[in-house]
Amino acid sequence: MAAAVIAGAVFVLTGCSAETNEQWSRLGLPEPATEETPLIGNLWVGSWIAAFAVGILVWGLILWAVVAYRRRSDELPTQTRFNMPIEFLYTVTPLVVIAALFYFTVDHQNQILDTSEEPDVEIGVIGQQWSWTFNYLDEDVYEVGTTTDIPTLYLPVGQTVEFTLDSPDVIHSFWIPSFYMKMDVIPGRTNSFQVTPDRQGSYSGKCAELCGAYHSSMVFNVEVVSEQEYEDQMQQLRDEGQTGEIEAPLRGSYSETPLTEAGGEQ
């Protein structure tokens, strides 16, 4: 039976594409697109390895107990009130596993959320019902999305980008799956994080928080491009008159005052 299972697994895997096999090695994560993704990817894969190790140990002990202590006669086995080695094992082992996972999680989290480095590009993100606004703060231009007009976020490859996240209405969540990073966008609180895209290409972004009736419309495109293409896109926004900074109104005034451009209503 074991040989049949192994043969079947090999048959299935050999029929997969190289891309699918790579995704299997990442345990379902998409192809990474930033310098920070190994921090999250390694923690993800390591956690699964630890989970499988614990599962194999538990299943092994269960099967061993089933076989070694199976019923052999009608004689009642010796009854004991406790077994110190076993009780010590199932008390200490979970503590060791949890302590190790906690240490690596906190260590990676501190590195992922570190914003002490001076960014090359600063982008203000506003999550509003139900789309996204991107302020390119260094370039003094912006792009506003709607439920029918999906916005596109442009990022220069190889440069550190700092996102600052704000919301005028409800809690959203800014998520680019290929960046292995998402963060809540909370009214009255500005969150931020940094990434350095290291692979040009087109990616998808979305809201990962159920935020209302048109939550499914909160999607956006991401284009990681060369520095020259990035500058060309910024110039195009200027040519279209999308200059200045869009500001999110205070919570509670959103229904009467939509997103406002510094200096006048938008």
Rank of each mutant, 00 (worst) to 15 (best):
S192K: 15
I62S: 02
V67P: 00
F193M: 09
V45W: 03
S217H: 11
G41S: 06
E229C: 03
Y142K: 02
P177A: 13
I56K: 00
H215V: 01
Y136H: 08
V12M: 13
T133Y: 07
W130L: 02
R71M: 05
A262F: 11
L153C: 13
F88H: 03
F134C: 01
T93S: 15
V141M: 03
S255M: 07
E31L: 10
E117T: 13
P119L: 07
I56R: 07
E227W: 05
I171M: 15
M218H: 04
R72L: 00
I56E: 01
E35L: 04
T133F: 00
S17I: 02
Y142N: 08
G145Y: 05
E261R: 15
N135S: 05
Q235N: 15
L61F: 15
E122P: 00
V144M: 10
F220L: 08
P177D: 10
V92T: 06
A100I: 14
T152S: 14
R81Y: 04
I126T: 02
L250M: 03
F193H: 05
D138L: 04
G241T: 08
I49P: 02
Q23F: 04
S216N: 12
Y230D: 11
G241A: 07
T146Y: 12
V10F: 10
I98N: 09
V224A: 04
A99R: 12
D232S: 12
N191C: 09
A208Y: 08
Q128D: 14
V141D: 09
D239A: 08
P151Q: 09
G15L: 12
T105D: 12
Q128A: 06
Q128H: 13
R238N: 02
V144S: 06
Q111S: 11
Y90W: 15
E143H: 09
P258V: 03
L210P: 02
I98F: 12
L250R: 01
P156H: 10
R189M: 13
G127A: 11
D184A: 14
Q235M: 14
I62T: 09
